[in-house]
Design a protein around this nucleic acid. Structure first.
Length: 575
RNA sequence: CGGGGCGUAGCGCAGCCUGGUAGCGCACCACAAUGGGGUUGUGGGGGUCGGAGGUUCAAAUCCUCUCGCCCCGACCA
């Protein structure tokens, strides 16, 4: 491609509303432009990258045996009512009406549509398993879009849905998808990890997320230092402590703690480490039918964080988990949230297993401005239900018993689920089995955030000059930079010759034939992150050489003119 | 949705407090010089100051309403 005929809209200054580096660089390099909150135009160079990502995904999905199709972005309400999600989805689903006042939404995902398709098209178990995928624009009206294309409202996703006669078949395809995802992220040239994950709103049983590792990642991931155990922190199990609870060594006393509300305040005030203090959180409870009812107290060690998912799964707790309102707590307990404690508390109680082995602890006295010291389970109060309530922390033993956990940040770029029959059941998607009986199909679903991958790749690969694309998804593999193109016939001739040769070889090349100064060409191509560059100048041509430079390096290499082609081939093969 | 902040040229900003008819840098156009790391000079084009209403002889500036955007927050592929 010729730079003179390409929209290269680079910016010298960083737009102020771009927080993270990928967003800044995508704007500066002229890959995207914002239209409105969470809505972005992909400029030609950005689209080139996006297409390369899509292409790799397509090739690997096709290779896995999946079939591509394309479903509408606008979907009728009826299907969503059938699955029950028209109510369940809430405000993140963008709803609209057509001219006949019929209700539609802009698809945040496509389970309903594919299930509807398959229940009419698939008749027999002999047609299973199948796996359909599409690369499509989705819309989720995020409460807070941010980080550019990373968490946009409109975004591009590859989503796949598989259908099976039984769980065993589902597990086979699930394993194939796991492998396929690894191939995809390998080819994309990203450092990533598959991790155990929660199934979230979509529901189902087994699930893995694929995370690109980057400091700016929104998710925390726990890894074993020794084994292959890796899990999203919201899913990571904390093992019960091995050592028993020490014997009580102190008497329970009530102490005044005026104005001391948070764990760190109480810790400082009483000169007690947070591990020795127990915090009590009050959340909304649920009755037998799962309706919101009453309050439940959760007790954790002061230095630990509540794990929402674990708490939410407990019987008697309202889902989704919500902290009780301050006024509700005041009314029920008679103190504010800074002074709640388990002693004498008339609420159903759950205690985290690490909090259950603390002796002589400090906790709120259920009276404002007072705490209890030297409290002991089974002496001063009965030991309530012990369970796992907290997030794992760095240094916890790995749940598989091998090594300890470390925690890193990740960007979720893929997610695979064993859905089960949630949708096929609700929508009555059946096939006949070998006995001629109608069987509800079992489903899997497999997503990749295509547009998010572009941002994630930049988060992981950049320097102070700009982007460092993995070769597979760089907008161009190679930049040809002629010096004084318009004033040197020799340079012009060599440039044209090389451009033709490289292009004919199928190397994605940009030749910077703009009438720009050298500095501008260098800066633009570095910002854009083109992995390889060749400078053509009279200076080198005099000696029969061209200058090669890899984007990752800071030194030029002089290469003889007649060796340049094989040299470039070599460089590209290395990548 | 709650809390905070910001809307002045394509981008980054000043001007607003103390009303007097809009400015700087980058980008853009023309010409010239320069020509291997965002070069220099001269001359240009471009703004209903987010929108509506109000106060005033006079509003970017003061007041009210409204829209948009950004940041923080606890349920987000």
């Amino acid at each position: 491609m010729r730079a003179s005929q390409t929209l290269i809209s680079t910016l010298k200054e960083t737009p102020t509303d771009a927080e993270i580096i990928s967003h800044q660089l995508m704007l500066r390099a002229g890959l995207i432009r914002k239209l409105a909150s969470g809505l972005y135009t992909w400029l030609p160079l950005g689209l080139k990258v996006l297409r390369k990502v899509e292409r790799i995904i397509r090739e690997e999905m096709d290779r896995s045996g999946a079939q591509e199709l394309l479903m509408p972005a606008v979907q009728p309400a009826e299907l969503w009512q059938e699955s029950g999600r028209w109510q369940a989805m809430g405000a993140e689903m963008l709803r609209l009406k057509d001219r006949h006042q019929r209700e539609f939404c802009i698809g945040p995902t496509h389970e309903e549509i594919i299930t509807d398709l398959c229940r009419t098209e698939l008749r027999s178990y002999k047609q299973l398993p199948v796996n359909f995928y599409q690369i499509q624009t989705k819309f989720r009206d995020e409460r807070r879009p941010r980080f550019g294309v990373m968490r946009a409202r409109e975004f591009i996703m590859k989503d796949a849905y598989s259908f099976h006669i039984n769980q065993e078949s589902l597990e086979e395809t699930y394993a194939v998808m796991h492998r396929t995802y690894c191939r995809i992220f390998d080819r994309l040239g990203l450092e990533y990890r598959p991790v155990l994950a929660d199934t979230g709103a979509i529901g189902g049983s087994g699930s893995h997320e694929f995370h690109v590792l980057a400091e700016s990642g929104e998710d925390a991931i726990a890894f074993s230092t020794v084994s292959s155990y890796a899990a999203n922190i919201e899913k990571a199990e904390s093992l019960p402590p091995q050592q028993p609870r020490p014997q009580p060594g102190a008497a329970m006393v009530r102490v005044a703690t005026p104005q001391q509300r948070t764990i760190s305040e109480v810790s400082q005030f009483l000169e007690t480490p947070p591990q020795q203090i127990l915090k009590t959180l009050v959340v909304n409870g649920a009755d037998e039918e799962g309706n919101e009812s009453g309050l439940v107290a959760l007790v954790l060690r002061g230095d630990h964080e509540l794990n929402l998912l674990k708490a939410q799964q407990l019987n008697g707790i309202f889902s989704p988990l919500t902290l009780a309102a301050d006024e509700t707590i005041e009314a029920a307990i008679g103190c504010s949230i800074g002074s709640i404690g388990p002693v004498g508390l008339k609420l159903p109680l759950f205690v985290d297993h690490d909090a259950a082995v603390v002796a002589d602890f400090v906790c709120g006295a259920n009276s404002d401005g007072e705490h209890l010291q030297g409290v002991n389970w089974e002496r001063d109060l009965p030991l309530p239900t012990i369970t796992s309530l907290r997030n794992v922390v760095e240094g916890d033993p790995s749940p598989d018993g091998e090594g300890v956990l470390t925690i890193k940040r990740g960007i979720e770029v893929g997610h695979i689920f064993q859905l089960g029959d949630k949708y096929s059941q609700a929508m009555n998607a059946t096939v006949l089995d070998e006995n001629g009986r109608a069987q509800v199909m079992t489903m899997g679903c497999y997503g990749i955030g295509v547009s998010r991958i572009v941002a994630a790749a930049i988060e992981q690969n950049h320097d102070e000059r700009g982007i460092l694309w993995p070769t597979a998804i760089a907008p161009f593999q190679l930049a040809l930079l002629p010096m004084n193109l318009n004033r040197s016939a020799a340079v012009e001739e060599m440039t044209e010759r090389l451009y033709r040769q490289l292009s004919d070889m199928g190397i994605d090349t940009i030749v910077d034939d703009r009438n720009e100064r050298a500095g501008i060409m260098f800066a633009d191509m570095e910002l854009l992150g083109i992995p390889h560059r060749i400078v053509i100048g009279d200076r080198g041509l005099k000696n029969g050489t061209l200058e090669y430079r890899n984007r990752q390096e800071s030194e030029n290499q002089d290469i003889a003119v007649d060796e340049i082609i094989s040299f470039i081939q070599q460089q590209l093969a290395l990548a």
